[in-house]
Design a protein around this nucleic acid. Structure first.
Length: 564
RNA sequence: CGGGGAGUGGCGCAGCCUGGUAGCGCACCUGCUUUGGGAGCAGGGGGUCAUCGGUUCAAAUCCGGUCUCCCCGACCA
């Protein structure tokens, strides 16, 4: 493509609203343009890059045995009422009415639609397994779209759904997708980290996330420094350090006027925080629940939610706390038999803790579990932190920020049950189909790539997803020889199947070099009067400091070699 | 939804405090010169100053409402 005939131009300065580096660079390079908050238009360069990503995904999904389909973005709201998600999905479904006053929604995801598609076409175990995918627009009315393509309201997603007859088959489908994802990201030229993930309110036993590590990422992941464990902070497990063993002592009330936090308590008594028990109140389905955890740890709400069967807990309000007879700042589960109690297993790793006395200004020494209070559930509900011990090999966990570019999880039978998608097994018995789902944020991926791969001059695009492979610049367009040689090279490269963005504008060299760096194609090729004087063409990789030179006659093959 | 910031040619900004009919840089058009890291000179085109209302002889500027965008938080495939 000749730049003189293309559409979209580069900007010296980014719009003031673009703060994230990928957002700035994508706008400045003329890849995308904002239409409204969280809504972007793709210009030719950006769309070309997007299509390349989609094509890689398509090839690998096909190779993994998945079949491409297409489902509507506009769907009857009724379908979502059947699955039970019409009112619970967050962010709320974008709903509107058609001319016959039927309620329609813009689909934020496609489990309902695909399950309906499968239901009509699958009736026997002989029809399974099946894996269907699409590359499709989604709409989610996000509370706060941000950071350019990293969190938009309308976005492009590849979503795949597997359907199996039993758990073992689901495991195979899942593994096939994980392997396909690894290939996809590798082919895109990306170093993507796979971590254990929270499966969310949907449930299901396994879930993993594919994260591109980047400073601006929204996700926090914990990685073992030995490289054998990684997990989203919502999911991460760790080895809790036990307190030194002690004989349980008699419980004892002590006055602690004005002390309401764990830090104050530990300081005033001269003890470490792991010798205290922290009580936190959550409201779940309208009831207050008391959660007890060792003072040196924090509650992980995602783990708590999973423990509660997917119900989202929230901090109780001051009124709710007071109404339950709890004393904020001096509370504990001791003596509170009427309130549901959840205990983190860290409480079992020490004796003689200091806990609230449920009386303002007083705490209790030598509190021991289960001697002094009950638990309805004991489980791991603690948040892992950097420096904690890896659950696999005792290594040290380190925190990194990243951008979630893919997510796979085992759904189970939730949708096939609510939407009645069943199959008959060999014995003629009916079962709900077992599902998995597998997403890749296609438009987000472009933003994530730029976020992770850029320098002060512009983007550094991996070859596989760059809109063109070569930035060909002619430097002295008043020189007929330069123009004819550059034109010829452009023709020859194009004929040889090399994708070339040809900067044939009448611009100063500096303008062309700067645009080349900004757009960040892998290889820059320069035809100039000076070079031709030596019978040479100049080649420079985007990340190379110095250019190299090849004879004019060898240019095409040399460029092809460089792109290998 | 809570907190903060901002809306002035395509982009970046000044002007607002102290009202007097809009300016700078980039980009764009014409001409000449220039040509290896965002050229120079000369001439030129383009703005309902987000919007609605109020105050005033007069509003980009003062007052009020509304809308939009960005950031932090909450939330989040």
């Amino acid at each position: 493509m000749r730049i003189s005939r293309s559409f979209g131009k580069t900007l010296r300065e980014a719009p003031a609203e673009a703060e994230t580096i990928s957002h700035q660079l994508l706008v400045r390079a003329g890849f995308i343009q904002q239409l409204a908050a969280g809504l972007y238009q793709f210009l030719p360069l950006g769309w070309r890059s997007q299509r390349k990503i989609a094509e890689i995904i398509r090839q690998e999904m096909d190779a993994a045995g998945a079949l491409e389909v297409n489902m509507p973005v506009v769907q009857p709201r009724e379908l979502w009422e059947q699955s039970g998600r019409a009112d619970t999905f967050f962010p709320p479904l974008a709903t509107f009415e058609d001319r016959r006053n039927r309620k329609l929604i813009l689909a934020p995801t496609h489990e309902e639609a695909v399950t309906t598609m499968v239901k009509a076409n699958i009736s026997s175990y002989r029809d399974l397994p099946v894996n269907l995918y699409q590359i499709q627009t989604k709409f989610r009315d996000e509370t706060r779209p941000r950071a350019g393509l990293l969190r938009t309201r309308e976005f492009m997603m590849k979503d795949a759904y597997s359907f199996d007859a039993d758990e073992e088959a689901l495991d195979l489908s899942y593994i096939a997708m994980v392997e396909a994802y690894k290939k996809i990201f590798a082919r895109c030229g990306l170093d993507v980290t796979m971590v254990d993930a929270d499966s969310g309110g949907i449930g299901g036993k396994d879930s993993q996330e594919f994260v591109l590590l980047a400073e601006n990422g929204e996700d926090v992941v914990l990685l073992c420094d030995h490289g054998d464990y990684g997990a989203n902070v919502e999911k991460a497990e760790f080895v809790k350090k036990p307190n030194p063993p002690e004989e349980p002592l008699e419980i004892e009330e002590i006055a602690t006027p004005g002390v309401t936090t764990i830090e104050e308590l530990a300081e005033s008594l001269g003890i470490p925080t792991n010798k205290t028990a922290k009580a936190v109140f959550y409201t779940v389905d309208g009831d207050v629940v008391i959660v007890t955890i060792r003072g040196d740890l924090d509650v992980n709400e995602a783990k708590l939610r999973n423990l509660l069967g997917g119900i989202e807990p929230r901090f109780s309000t001051a009124e709710e706390v007071a109404k339950s007879g709890l004393v904020a700042g001096s509370a504990s589960a001791v003596g509170l038999d009427h309130i549901r109690s959840i205990v983190d297993d860290s409480i079992t790793l020490g004796a003689n803790l200091v806990a609230g006395a449920n009386k303002e200004g007083y705490h209790l020494k030598n509190v021991n579990f289960p001697r002094d209070f009950k638990a309805d559930i004991v489980a791991d509900i603690a948040t892992a932190r950097p420096g904690d011990t890896c659950p696999i090999d005792g290594g040290r966990l380190e925190a990194r920020r990243g951008i979630e570019v893919g997510h796979v999880f085992k759904l189970g039978t939730g949708y096939s049950e609510s939407l009645d998608a069943k199959f008959l097994d060999a014995q003629g018995e009916s079962h709900p189909i077992i599902m998995g789902c597998y997403g890749i944020g296609v438009s987000r991926l472009l933003g994530a790539i730029v976020e992770a791969y850029h320098d002060e001059r512009g983007m550094i695009l991996p070859k596989a997803i760059a809109p063109y492979a070569v930035y060909l610049a002619s430097l002295n367009v008043d020189d007929d020889e330069v123009v004819s040689k550059a034109d010829q090279l452009y023709e020859d490269l194009t004929a040889a199947g090399v994708e070339v963005l040809y900067d044939d504008r009448d611009e100063k060299p500096g303008v062309k070099f700067n645009d080349a760096d900004l757009i960040g194609l892998p290889l820059r090729v320069v035809v100039s009067r000076r070079g031709l004087g030596n019978g040479e063409i100049e080649l420079k990789g985007r990340t190379e400091e110095k250019a190299s030179y090849v004879a004019v006659g060898d240019a095409v093959s040399a460029i092809q070699d460089r792109l290998e």
